[in-house]
Design a protein around this nucleic acid. Structure first.
Lengths: 110, 110
DNA sequence: ATATTCAATCGCAATATTGCGATTGAATAA
DNA sequence: TTATTCAATCGCAATATTGCGATTGAATAT
């Protein structure tokens, strides 16, 4: 490859990139929306709602969890997933910062 | 691979995923921040600011442009890049919708 | 004409990702 | 015990991505 040169970027830029990468897949967006709607889900619920195989959903859940965006707690036989409130809020704030830092100097942008 | 099953997701989910994917790289976050700060940049400016090769910057600019997040206008010898205001606003709104749709039912999330 | 100076594209090697079937593991049910 | 039912992991084939050197192309200098 060309390994991404993380060392030349700030921690914030690297963290933000990792979390956005985790969200940047339609299946994971759908999973997050379903988790928000239902408040909490086990893997099987999501397999039922979306049209993907159990192994695939499980992989996506793992990636979202690795990025810290969701949490999973064992609930009897199942693992119950839900949004990780702190990370969610942090990401929301950081994105808000990025997006609102742009004030269109309208007509003469270029 | 397993080709992403775009057909089972909504257009909004697919569009959002594509645009987030474009942002989900520290170099591209840095490029966007620099474009916002400077209002507009040519490729060479960014090569100077970030520590990446010209070819690499050019690739990243292309991806951001493909995603519709930036626009490039020819300015004499150079191409001048800046944020595409409409897409930027749209993405901001969609992200805001996604993030604010979550109201933490706090303690008993899982 | 030749050199310079940009941005864009090509080509490539080194991974990373995606989706899924198959397997494993853990917990309960019969 | 044996069967069932979950989630997680492994392994794999088919791409996709990343970074960069090298090349190309276009525009201006000398």
């Amino acid at each position: 490859m060309g390994i991404t040169k993380t060392e030349i970027f700030t921690d914030e830029q690297n963290r933000l990139a990792i979390q956005l990468k985790a969200i940047a897949h339609p299946a994971r967006i759908a999973i997050l929306q379903e988790l928000i709607k239902a408040n909490a889900c086990v893997c099987g619920d999501l397999v039922g709602e979306l049209g993907l195989a159990q192994a695939t959903i499980s992989q996506h859940l793992k990636e979202l969890k690795n990025a810290g965006l969701i949490q999973g707690t064992i609930e009897g036989v199942n693992v119950c997933y839900c949004i990780e409130p702190t990370a969610w809020k942090n990401l929301q704030d950081e994105l808000n910062g990025l997006f609102s830092s742009y004030q269109c100097g309208n007509q003469n942008c270029c």
